[in-house]
Every structure is written in structure tokens, then in C-alpha cells.
Design a protein around this nucleic acid. Structure first.
Lengths: 230, 230
DNA sequence: ACCTGAACACCGTTCAAGT
DNA sequence: ACCTGAACACCGTTCAAGT
């Protein structure tokens, strides 16, 4: 953790803070108390410094979040993926989702900023590559990746906000109140589902939805395997 | 716009503000300047009142956003939908997306809060109903709806944030900088795509992705039509 | 019942000055 | 070159008081 060696040749005051130290402390705050608690003032206090000292090391708060993203992606485990391209595609997407589900605050950063950090492109590479191996053109493979990313990002955002609500708020959600009394005349299906809606939407259906999406995206080799020279 | 008749029988000071007036003004601010400019202080000033007067009519800012959501959903056009259930499902989902794409700020509210306002459940009803008519059980139909909502919400979130960036920021995005120099050894597919990534991701692929997803979600009647008694 | 004013406990960021 | 202090221009919300 010796962040900045005092390098005798360099002019000016030796630094007390470093990017590495800033990022480490910021990560701790985020892990322990959520991204909402990460403010420049709070971070400075935690570092025994002043808010303005931070601005000497990062341009603004957005850059700080980007550094956090990089840091996270860099230390992320990269699972071994199956050889079969279709299974590899599913595994890469699922790994990406499981990773991001661990720290939902990242999803906000990912969509607030542009998708993924360089280190996270490993997942994207595998999805695109597997899609090409399944018979898509590179252009189609990018399209397939985007659909998968939309689906994944949506699932993460919805789940993250639902979890945040449950954490802070005990009263029944707005949605529950709405579903409690629906007009069966205009909304027969939903009224029939009624209270079961909450229970059904509590299930984790990421995997089945992803399989359906991938089924629709990839060319069909038929349900009978081995007919076209595998 | 006569908001509150002075109703002689009622005790106390007659109201100067009303929910309706508050919502109308809030909507104007959001439409003209974006949801980021909607603050309780700003809204009060616009109404010639004080921040605290608002708290007499809405519990907090979240409730105000919910009222805005209701207002929007209530005035939303409900397109005529095709008779064929598969086409109806696609049309309902697409209408939902097109509606929300008009005012992307709503997506933040939708995910920050729970999905849709009562008036917006019309779309949900049609998606679920069409899925059942296509042969899914009600439970499966809810699962299918959820997948479609994840996909749609993800697309809207990503597009909304990308658009916001373009509006406020002229410098090349972080993503563009990253894609400009990728290591072809570790990320061959992405490096080969390189600068074309930006161009490919600029295309609107919602419809094709949705079709693929729905293809994967619904039972297959085979590509040959009319074989099972239509 | 409805509204006001002052205050609390915060934000991110700029600017001018210190070492 | 690196850091500090004071200040600017904001937030949402509470509390006590006025009419």
C-alpha cells in the first residue's frame, strides 16, 4: 500500500493521497453502506482529508465511479466456460449477470455510464464469439449481444430496485396495493391472477427467459441433433 | 381548472393549491427541462408558493412522481391491436415501449418504483392474455411477460442514458475510447468489430430482439401454418 | 385546514490561498 | 504539486408558528 514513493527528483509537495487509496476507501464505503452513501465529502472525511483534495486525483464524481467499476471488473473471477458454443453463450451471459447481481449498485453506474469497463469486455467477447460460432454473422452476433444485454440489464435494474425497496420500506408496495383490487371487467387476466402476481414475480426466472431469448436469436439446427455434420 | 370550490361548510382556511395544479405544473417542468430539474423547491416557486405548502398535498417527492406516472398513463393512447394473439402480443409490447420511449424520464420512475401505474396495466393485460391464447398457462404467461418487461426496461434504460449523455456531453464516450484500442489477442471478435461497434449499436433493434424473444417464449406451431386447425 | 419562514443536515464543485 | 478553507448554489424534509 505504499502508494506514492517520494521520488526525490520531482518538484512540489509530495502527495499524501493516491488514486489507489481513494478507490480502496470508496469501495469499502460502497460495500458496507451502498452507493448512495458515497459522497465526495464523506469519502474525504474517511481519508482524513478534504473534499477538494480528491479533485486533484479524479476529475469528478463520475470518474470516481468509473474507477470503481474498473476495479471491480479487474478483480472479477472469470469462470471456465463450456466448449459447446450455445452453452458457452448461456454461461457467459449468466456469469455476467451473477457477477453484477452481487453488487447491484454497479448496474446504476453501468447504465448511467456506458456499458462495461475494459476488463468486463471478456464477457462480451465470449457472447459475441459464441454467437458467431453458432452461425450468426458478426453483425447479427452484435445484435444478439445487445438483446441479451437489454434483457440482463433490465432484470438487474428491476431486481435491484425491488431489493432496495424491501430494505428501506416495510409498507406494501404501490404495485401490491394496485394488484389487490383490479377491475375484472377491463383486466380479466390480471384480476384472476390477483394476489398470486407477487408470488410469481418473486421467482428467479432469469435463466428460463435467457434460454428463450437465445433460442429465438440463434439459427435452429432442429431439435434432432447431429443432422448437419457436427 | 377551478381546483377547489370554497365549500362554505368546511372549516379552516380555503386551499390555494390542489393536487391537480401541482401535477400539471410538475408535468410542465419535466416535459420542458427533464425530470432532473423537478425539485420541490423549484416546483413551489413555479406555483408561487413555498416548498412546505406542497407537503400538505403530497406525502413526499416519491408520491409526486407516482402522481405524474398516473397522469401520464391515464392520458396515454391505447392503439387498436391485431386479432392474431402472437401479433397482438408483439403489438402490445411495442406500444408499451414506444409510449415510454416518448418520455424516458418515466423509466427511472418505473424502475425506481414498481412497474406500472394502474392505467398502464392495460398493456400488461394484453401481453398476458395474448400469451395464454398462444398456448401458455397463466403462470407461464406471467413469466413471459416478465421476460418481455426486462428486455423492454433494459432497452429503455440504456437508450435513455445514452441519449442523456449525447445531450450533455460532447466528448467521446468512455465506451468509444475503450473500443478504439482493444487487444486483438485477448478480445479478437471485439477488436475486429472495432469502430463499427458504435455504428451497430446505434441501430434500433428493439423489434427484432422482441421477435426473437417471443419466438423463444411461445410454443412452436411449426413454420408451416394451418396444420393444427386454425 | 392550509400556508409560511427559518432551520437542519446534507450535496458537488469552484476559487483563492497556503506550503 | 499538492492540499486547505471558505464559499456558491443547490437538495428534501422537519418544526413551530401564523391565519
Amino acid at each position: 500500500m505504499s502508494t506514492a514513493s517520494p521520488r526525490p527528483g520531482r518538484p512540489g509537495r509530495p502527495p499524501r493521497l493516491s488514486r489507489a487509496e481513494i478507490v480502496t476507501t470508496a469501495r469499502r464505503i460502497v460495500d458496507e453502506e451502498g452507493v448512495g452513501k458515497l459522497t465526495m465529502r464523506r469519502l474525504a472525511k474517511e481519508l482524513g482529508s478534504t473534499p477538494m483534495a480528491l479533485y486533484h486525483h479524479v476529475r469528478d464524481k463520475e470518474e470516481l465511479l468509473l474507477l470503481l467499476l474498473e476495479d471491480f471488473a479487474g478483480r472479477a473471477a472469470r469462470p471456465r466456460l463450456p466448449a459447446d458454443p450455445r452453452e458457452r453463450l448461456l454461461a457467459a451471459a449468466t456469469a455476467m449477470r451473477d457477477l453484477l447481481a452481487q453488487c447491484p449498485w454497479l448496474v446504476e453506474v453501468l447504465t448511467a455510464d456506458d456499458l462495461l469497463a475494459p476488463s468486463a469486455l471478456w464477457f462480451v467477447e465470449h457472447v459475441v464469439d459464441a454467437a458467431v460460432e453458432c452461425g450468426l454473422t458478426p453483425e447479427q452476433a452484435v445484435g444478439a449481444y445487445r438483446s441479451i444485454w437489454y434483457y440482463t440489464a433490465g432484470e438487474l435494474v428491476v431486481r435491484a430496485t425491488a431489493a432496495r425497496r424491501r430494505a428501506t420500506d416495510t409498507r406494501p408496495t404501490y404495485r401490491d396495493r394496485v394488484f389487490a383490487d383490479l377491475d375484472p371487467a377491463s383486466l380479466p387476466r390480471l384480476a384472476a391472477l390477483g394476489p398470486r402476481w407477487a408470488e410469481l414475480t418473486a421467482e428467479d426466472t432469469y435463466a428460463t427467459g435467457l434460454r428463450a431469448l437465445v433460442d429465438g436469436l440463434l439459427p435452429h439446427r432442429g431439435t434432432v441433433r447431429g443432422t448437419d455434420g457436427e
